[in-house]
C-alpha cells in the first residue's frame, strides 16, 4: 500500500517540478505551467480519495497510540 501512495507522490512531485521548469523557461503567455499545475491538483485529489477509500476498505489505518 505504501508503494502505491509513493507512486502517486512521485507523479505529484513530477507535475509540480515540471510546472516550475515551465515557469522558468516559458514566457508568461505559455499555458504549459497551468496545465502541469492542473495535473498536480488532479493527482493530489485522487491520492486523497484513494486514502479515504483504502481506509474504508480497511487496507490502511491511521497511526494511533499502541
Amino acid at each position: 500500500m505504501n508503494y502505491i501512495i509513493l507512486i502517486f507522490f512521485i507523479f505529484i512531485i513530477y507535475s509540480l517540478a515540471s510546472a516550475l521548469y515551465y515557469m522558468m523557461k516559458d514566457g508568461d503567455g505559455s499555458k504549459r505551467m497551468v496545465k502541469a499545475l492542473t495535473l498536480r491538483v488532479g493527482i493530489s485529489i485522487a491520492l486523497f480519495l484513494f486514502i479515504l477509500f483504502s481506509f474504508w476498505m480497511g487496507w490502511i489505518k491511521p497511526s494511533g497510540v499502541a
Binding site: I12, I13, L16, A19, L20, M33, R40
Partner: peptide
C-alpha cells in the same frame, strides 16, 4: 501560485 501549490504538496 507555484509557492502555494508547493505548500499544498
Amino acid at each position: 501560485a507555484w509557492y502555494w501549490h508547493f505548500v499544498d504538496v
